[in-house]
Design a protein around this nucleic acid. Structure first.
Lengths: 137, 137
DNA sequence: TCTTGACTTAGACAATGTCCAATGTAGGAT
DNA sequence: ATCCTACATTGGACATTGTCTAAGTCAAGA
């Protein structure tokens, strides 16, 4: 993730202050912010950045495969910059916090063809749900 | 699911026309409607049913463990009445259609303790994403 | 049949996300 | 160094999904 900006420039991204700030906010391994959280953090550095730009930029990063969009609870989507390493999520049912975990084995065994019902499958997600240490108290 | 109404009555549910209609709409194995779809279908039989009642009733059914709430795309949640048989979901990335599939083995192997980060895990979800036969065309 | 607490209703409100027309600007061309 | 222009940003209106509340209604036991 640290050389994200170079990768993006290499793909012809026009590098603006807004995009740089959004990318910097997302830098880090265990970060799973909502769009509004990204907006708030970006605005600390670039006060007049608009919500629309944050949404646009996040959408572009998802399209480029640099971050993964995670919808765990029907509330705000969260954005996961750890797109280059296969991982799964631990989600708190109360506060929505997400934590990455790493595959314990190769559970991603593909579905047998007869269970695919004609779908062209491109990804598998595994989500463990429960209460985080904070909310369990 | 077919004797859902009896189970609910047995739990002290007050049986109203609205609840009956919502439960009937959800009857069926491969049904995964959004709350608005449930409302529209319920309104065909009981025209003046309100959205609030549909939301309330769906929430109660989830609390009672009779249906499962599925959030696959950050858009509307879908309600899965097939709560009594373990299963996984195949989700179309374009149209949001959901299809049930049945565990091919016991992939639900628990996470090792050192990967739980103090979470009290209560459920595991597996979602396969791709394009359904319709959208692939 | 009466009564009562649970249920339903309409609509206001909240949270999240999308879209658009007007304005600004990054970076190549000159 | 400056100019151009296609692409990016902005603010605000709008859309979708879901929640809440106060007032009216009704299921089911007495």
């Amino acid at each position: 993730m640290s050389d994200l900006l170079e990768r993006l420039r290499g793909r012809g991204w026009r590098l603006t202050a807004q995009r740089r700030v959004v990318a910097e906010v997302l830098d880090g391994d265990h970060v799973h912010y909502t769009a509004d959280e990204v907006h708030a953090l970006a605005a600390e550095r670039l006060p007049e950045i608009s919500r629309a730009t944050v949404y646009n930029t996040l959408g572009e990063l998802v399209t480029l495969g640099e971050v993964i969009e995670v919808s765990t609870d029907g509330r705000a989507k969260r954005y996961d910059p750890n797109a280059h390493h296969a991982h799964q999520h631990l989600v708190c049912a109360r506060c929505g916090t997400i934590r990455d975990v790493h595959p314990s084995g190769d559970l991603l065994a593909d579905l047998p063809t007869q269970e695919r019902y004609g779908f062209a499958i491109s990804a598998v997600e595994v989500t463990y749900r429960g209460l985080c240490p904070n909310c369990a108290a």
